[in-house]
Design a protein around this nucleic acid. Structure first.
Length: 112
DNA sequence: ACATGTTCCTTAC
DNA sequence: GTAAGGAACATGT
């Protein structure tokens, strides 16, 4: 079921959000992988789009982490309480973090 | 330390 | 009101 996007949502943001919805529950992916899936050379651009996501929780922006398996960012923050909320959401889906990084690399989702 | 793509903000016509 | 330029950004090497 496709999401109806606001007129202010740019084409690039729609592609990012559509891709994010492909990530199954209990899995995560990285900014790099998502960017590559879109044919975009900049993971930073993906982070920029996710930062402005207005469609949570339909668009599961919490399932995107950084390439070194650290949490990345959430709700406009790169650290602090926001990141703990992000990890709490993932924990509820069965994705665990140990020592500040993703515990089980098998939970990384690959786009096809 | 620099490259990268996209968006936001400011400034100028 | 529109155009153009520069800065910012939830990154990665």
């Amino acid at each position: 079921m496709a999401l109806i996007y606001d007129a202010a949502t740019t084409p690039f943001q729609r592609r990012v959000y559509d891709a994010a919805q492909e990530i199954p529950r209990g899995m995560v992916t990285t900014y790099v992988r998502l960017a590559r899936h879109l044919g975009c050379g900049s993971a930073r651009a993906v982070g920029q789009a996710l930062r402005r996501n207005r469609y949570a929780p339909r668009v599961p922006c919490h399932r995107i982490i950084s390439a070194d398996l650290r949490p990345g960012g959430f709700s406009g923050q790169t650290g602090g309480a926001a990141l703990r909320r992000k990890q709490a959401l993932l924990r509820a889906e069965g994705v665990l973090f140990r020592a500040g990084r993703l515990a089980d690399a098998r939970q990384l989702f690959d786009f096809r």
